[in-house]
């Protein structure tokens, strides 16, 4: 990455769009200069005249992909983008999930809602380097079946015997019909699948409340704080430790994170 000063984004074009759910859109973006990034890192996406927002990379390499939940001014503008539209990207910023993986580990990927985006990036990395990892389990949950992103990919992954990824899906409440997967909140299902502590790491991304209950469940099962790895998504503006917005105590999430172990998170002041 060129060391960009002055908050100047790299010009980029939207090259593909895919609706994941009613309110989540996946974008593929081609920047004028190559951007290389690692799972867990984030970038700032500019839609000019609207503004700039932070998003996790949702893929592992190549053009930038991100999945955006429509919820505010910028994200609405992003959802109105068409293929060929002009945008800007800044990044990559922050640390990576990979910084926390030492040696060959069994991996549990636990994702809720839009938290699935950074997990997808890590999953792609694992698939591309499958022999460097042990057993891989993906647990993904959402409110309803219609809120589960990346369904086509996950169904294909399940069928792909070579990938050797156990895909577990759940929704919060029993849907009317046709649902053959789990029903129940993510932490409950996580408890049920009996994750093994030995030589394993759990990556949990999702709403703060889900992260908390998953961490509680895992701690009860004997997982140590440094085996549970998560991301914090504080409101950000600059992404480079200057605008003073994203700190929890002395920790600037944009610079020291966004990936933290549960041990790190527990040590932070209650300013979350």
């Amino acid at each position: 990455m060129k060391n960009r000063e002055d908050y100047i984004p790299i010009p980029a074009k939207v090259v593909a769009l895919r609706d994941e759910t009613l309110d989540v859109l996946t974008l593929q973006i081609k920047p004028d200069e190559k951007v290389t990034f690692r799972p867990g890192q984030f970038f700032l996406l500019s839609v000019f005249n609207a503004g700039e927002s932070a998003f996790a990379f949702s893929n592992d390499s190549g053009d930038i992909e991100c999945s955006v939940k429509c919820c505010g001014l910028n994200t609405q503008a992003i959802h109105r983008l068409a293929i060929g539209d002009f945008v800007g990207v800044r990044g990559p910023y922050g640390n990576s999930f990979l910084d926390f993986i030492k040696g060959k580990k069994d991996i549990y990927l636990v994702a809720g809602g839009i938290g699935t985006a950074p997990i997808r990036s890590l999953l792609q990395h694992i698939l591309a380097n499958r022999n460097k990892f042990g057993k891989v389990t993906l647990l993904m949950g959402a409110r309803t079946p219609a809120d589960l992103p990346y369904m086509d990919e996950l169904m294909a992954l399940r069928k792909n015997k070579k990938a050797k990824v156990d895909v577990i899906l759940t929704v919060d409440t029993q849907p009317e019909e046709g649902w053959k997967e789990n029903v129940g909140f993510v932490p409950v299902i996580l408890d049920k699948i009996k994750p093994k502590t030995k030589n394993s790491l759990v990556f949990v991304c999702g709403p703060p409340i889900m992260i908390k209950f998953c961490a509680d469940t895992l701690s009860k099962k004997g997982f140590k704080g440094d085996q549970i790895i998560s991301t914090l998504e504080n409101r950000m503006q600059c992404g480079i430790g200057k605008c003073g917005r994203c700190n929890i105590g002395p920790v600037y999430v944009c610079k020291c994170g966004p990936v933290f172990t549960y041990d790190d998170i527990k040590k932070m002041p209650k300013d979350m």
Binding site: Y7, N49, A50, G51, Q237, K242, C243, G244, R245
Partner: peptide
């Protein structure tokens, strides 16, 4: 105090003082 936000206004992106 150095906190700021950014705002797009008529083809210019500004950095503007903000406050915690």
């Amino acid at each position: 105090c150095h906190c700021f936000c950014m705002s797009d206004e008529r083809n210019i992106r500004y950095r503007i003082w903000d406050s915690c």
